[in-house]
Amino acid sequence: TQSIHIEKSDTAADTYGFSLSSVEEDGIRRLYVNSVKETGLASKKGLKAGDEILEINNRAADALNSSMLKDFLSQPSLGLLVRT
């Protein structure tokens, strides 16, 4: 696993530069990185398409609903625990 911390203040970007997809496997919801913008903040921090997001801001990914995800992604900083 890899811990990634991203700050939007690093650039004038209003997004982190990646998209997520939610997949249900064996009754457990998993979050995967769908795509990463080549010039985006997430790419600079090493996030890659296909990575599994285990935690966002110290909250287990399978416990997050879509409104919580939207809220986290609109925050000025983001902490991710990722399995590559």
Rank of each mutant, 00 (worst) to 15 (best):
D26Q: 11
I53S: 02
S77R: 15
S66D: 10
I56C: 03
I4K: 01
A63C: 12
L80C: 04
Y32T: 05
V23C: 11
T39I: 15
G79I: 12
F72T: 06
F72M: 12
K37E: 15
A63Q: 12
E55Y: 03
K45A: 05
E52S: 00
P76H: 15
A12P: 10
Y32A: 02
S21V: 10
G27F: 02
E55A: 09
S35F: 08
T39S: 13
A49V: 14
Q2K: 15
Q75R: 12
T15Q: 09
S9H: 01
E7M: 09
S19I: 01
G50V: 00
S43M: 13
D10M: 08
K48E: 07
L78F: 01
K37S: 14
K8D: 01
Y32Q: 05
G17N: 01
T39G: 15
N57S: 03
S43N: 13
A61T: 14
Y16W: 14
T39N: 14
V82A: 06
E24L: 10
G27R: 02
K45L: 06
E52K: 01
D10H: 06
A42S: 04
K70E: 13
S9A: 12
L64C: 13
E38G: 09
G40L: 02
K70R: 12
V23P: 02
K37V: 15
N34W: 05
T39F: 13
L73A: 07
K44Q: 15
I53F: 01
K70I: 09
S22R: 10
A49N: 11
S67L: 11
D71Y: 10
K44G: 09
K45H: 09
G17V: 01
G40H: 00
Q75T: 08
V36S: 03
L69C: 12
N58C: 11
R83W: 03
I53Q: 00
G46P: 07
S9I: 00
L78I: 15
A60Q: 14
G79S: 14
S43K: 08
E7S: 13
T15I: 04
D14P: 02
E55T: 07
R30H: 10
G17T: 00
L47C: 00
Q2V: 15
V82T: 13
S3D: 11
S66V: 04
H5Y: 14
D26G: 10
T84L: 00
A49R: 11
N34L: 08
I56W: 01
E52M: 04
S21R: 14
D62W: 10
R30I: 02
G27Q: 03
S19M: 06
E38K: 14
N57C: 04
R83N: 09
L47D: 00
L73C: 08
I6R: 03
A42Q: 06
S67T: 15
L31T: 07
F72D: 09
L31H: 06
R29N: 06
R30W: 06
A60M: 07
D10R: 08
Q75E: 14
T84Y: 04
E52V: 03
N34P: 02
D71R: 11
L31M: 07
L41F: 01
D14A: 09
N34R: 13
I4E: 01
K45N: 03
V33R: 01
G79Q: 15
D10I: 05
L78T: 04
S74W: 07
S21I: 11
K48C: 08
T11C: 11
R30E: 02
N57T: 00
L20F: 15
I56V: 10
A12I: 09
L80A: 04
L73F: 15
K44S: 08
K70L: 10
A61I: 09
I6M: 15
L41S: 08
T15L: 03
V23T: 11
L81K: 15
K8Q: 05
I6G: 01
V23R: 10
L73D: 12
L69W: 12
Q75H: 06
V82G: 02
S19R: 10
L78G: 03
V23Y: 09
A12H: 14
E52Q: 09
G79F: 11
I6T: 03
E24Q: 11
L64T: 10
S43I: 06
L73M: 15
L81I: 08
S21M: 14
S67K: 09
V36T: 02
D62M: 09
V33S: 03
K45E: 15
D10C: 07
M68E: 14
N57F: 00
S22Q: 13
G46T: 03
L81D: 04
I28V: 13
S66Q: 10
L41H: 07
S9M: 03
A13Y: 10
P76N: 08
H5E: 05
D51N: 02
V23M: 08
I53T: 01
A60S: 12
E38R: 11
G50S: 00
D71K: 13
E25T: 12
S77P: 04
S77N: 07
I56F: 00
N65P: 10
